[in-house]
Amino acid sequence: MSAPNRLLMPVVLAMLAGCASQPSSINLQKSSQCPIELNSNQQLILTLPSNPTTGFRWVVQDAAPSVLKSLGPEVYSNPEEAGLVGSAGQSTWRFSVLQSGTGRLLLTYQRPWEADVAPEKTFDCEIQTR
């Protein structure tokens, strides 16, 4: 191996190690995990407890459109072991990084027909992307 190649080998290995340590997606479940930083190759998966049978729904107020791209609509699921009609489940949203910058992911848990009532819950998270 030539001298220049020997000198480049540690740099290449360090770069590969850095890439290997980054997860391809970040799972976010509560605003106490915020603010959150994402790299350009990562996805954000947001999962929040939900029970639409009560009339409450998560409403996306701000989806950080300047830095995140939605990968589809909300997906609701409830645990198979619950098996009860009306039991609680979870709502999930998926996003990918659109570009570098800062944005805000804001969702409120409310009944859509109660416009003058404060939300039951709020999820508010600053998103930083690189």
Rank of each mutant, 00 (worst) to 15 (best):
L98R: 07
R111P: 00
P119A: 10
D62F: 06
D124I: 06
Q22F: 04
N78H: 09
P23T: 15
Y109F: 11
S100K: 14
Y76A: 02
T129E: 04
A14C: 11
S31L: 03
V60H: 01
E120Y: 04
T54L: 07
F56R: 02
S21R: 14
Q22H: 12
A14L: 13
R104C: 03
R94K: 15
S50K: 00
T92K: 08
L107P: 04
D62M: 08
P35L: 10
Q110Y: 00
L48V: 14
P23I: 08
E80F: 04
W58D: 00
V117M: 06
K69F: 03
R111I: 15
Q128M: 06
A88G: 13
T92E: 03
F56M: 12
C19K: 14
I127M: 07
A17L: 13
T92V: 09
R94C: 03
P23K: 14
S77Q: 14
S31V: 10
A20S: 12
P10F: 04
N27P: 01
C34A: 09
C125D: 12
T108W: 00
Q33G: 12
M1P: 04
S70C: 07
A82C: 15
T92H: 01
I45Y: 02
N78P: 00
S2M: 02
Q61T: 15
Q99G: 05
Q128C: 07
L84V: 14
P49G: 13
M15N: 07
F95A: 01
G103K: 06
G89A: 04
G86A: 05
A3M: 09
C19W: 05
C19A: 14
M1L: 07
P23G: 14
Q42I: 10
V97K: 03
T108H: 06
K69E: 12
S50M: 05
L13V: 08
G72K: 08
G83F: 01
C19F: 09
K30S: 15
E37W: 08
T53W: 00
L71P: 03
D124F: 05
P112S: 10
M1W: 00
S21E: 13
T122V: 15
N41F: 05
I45M: 09
S21N: 12
E74C: 04
Q29A: 07
G86W: 06
R104L: 13
P23D: 11
A82N: 11
G101A: 03
E120G: 01
G18R: 11
Q43R: 14
C19E: 10
G55T: 12
T122I: 15
I45E: 06
E37C: 10
V60S: 01
Q90N: 15
K69S: 13
T129F: 00
W113T: 15
A88W: 00
L48P: 08
S40C: 04
L13A: 10
N5R: 14
S31A: 15
R57S: 12
T54P: 06
Q43D: 05
T47G: 05
P49D: 11
A64D: 05
C19P: 00
I36P: 03
S25Q: 14
C19S: 13
V75N: 12
L98A: 11
Y76I: 09
V117N: 01
S2W: 01
Q29V: 08
A88F: 01
R130Y: 08
Q90K: 11
D116R: 12
L84H: 08
T122M: 12
L105G: 11
N41E: 13
L46F: 03
V75K: 12
L105P: 01
G86Q: 07
M9N: 07
G83H: 09
Q99N: 11
L38N: 03
V11M: 09
V60C: 04
A20R: 01
